[in-house]
């Protein structure tokens, strides 16, 4: 009878470390998410430094380091007035869009008359890109500020409206849920309040999340109208003056704020719907 003893090979601890690192990365979600960012900026930096040029040309693109330097310069100046101007515009546009979108969406989903009386013109307006509204926004509103809020409103309004309508319609289409209410003696108001509204909440919430992102999406367009302040304004202004690193900085800042606020909306929506279960492949 022999006893097998595995001798520690010289490379054993390296393998061990690699294994540990692999399990740590595979099982730790924040780490995985961080890894995606590191890879994104890392690959970008590499492509920039080797002057990658195959279909996509990285030769003239600012590298992450240049963008980083531009960001430091911007942050050490007076950035808050820009941030605050943009945030205000986005939040106003978004707040109005949420109220109008959810309210109208619920009415359109519930009443056929409202649908017929409102949706045909809205469907025509919906595909018009925000940038096409710029001239009219100047003509329609008393000042640039209101025009900018209007442009961000447009970005948020349609996804919220459509998601709300679809949510209400799909809940109304769920025969069993509606029948449950009916045989408990529910009148239309009860069905609306206890079944249709909560039933369409997941869809409304995804509309609100998409709408939040879209409001930021429209910020650069909106701030074409701006005179001095705003992250979108800086981005547009740097383009006009061919100063490229701040453009990318502005893009990334908008992306960052958009992603953060969408995340915040998503979190808030989840907190309001503890009854939802989301199971994904790990």
């Amino acid at each position: 009878m022999t006893v097998m003893v595995s001798k520690p090979s010289p490379m054993g601890w390296v393998n061990q470390l690699a294994m540990t690192a692999r399990t740590a990365i595979l099982q730790n979600r924040p780490l995985r998410q961080l890894l995606s960012l590191v890879l994104f900026f890392g690959i970008w930096q590499i492509l920039s430094s080797i002057n990658f040029h195959f279909i996509i040309n990285f030769q003239f693109l600012p590298s992450p380091l240049e963008v980083f330097r531009a960001t430091i310069k911007f942050m050490t100046g007076n950035p808050w007035i820009h941030f605050w101007s943009s945030i205000q515009r986005v939040l106003w546009g978004y707040a109005i869009a949420s109220m109008a979108g959810v309210l109208l969406g619920v009415l359109v989903g519930w009443f056929e008359v409202v649908e017929d009386l409102t949706m045909p013109p809205l469907e025509i307006l919906r595909p018009i890109p925000a940038v096409a509204w710029i001239p009219l926004a100047i003509l329609m509103f008393p000042n640039a500020e209101t025009g900018m809020v209007y442009i961000t409103f447009l970005g948020a309004f349609f996804p919220i409206l459509i998601s709300t309508i679809k949510g209400v319609e799909s809940t109304l289409g769920d025969t069993v849920l509606i029948r449950v209410g009916q045989c408990l003696g529910a009148n239309p108001w009860h069905i609306f309040k206890d079944i249709v509204i909560p039933g369409s909440m997941p869809s409304i919430a995804s509309g609100l999340t998409i709408g939040m992102g879209n409001a930021w999406f429209c910020l650069v367009t909106a701030e074409i109208l701006a005179g001095r302040y705003g992250i979108g304004y800086i981005t547009w202004e740097s383009y006009v003056t061919s100063n490229y690193p701040p453009i990318v900085m502005g893009m990334l800042l908008i992306g960052l704020m958009g992603a953060f606020s969408s995340w915040a909306v998503d979190r808030a929506a989840r907190a309001l719907m503890p009854w939802r279960v989301i199971k994904k492949q790990s």
Partner: peptide, 13 residues
Amino acid sequence: GFVFQQYSLLPWK
């Protein structure tokens, strides 16, 4: 009163 074949409790209650 009606009891459905499908699970029919309101998921949000």
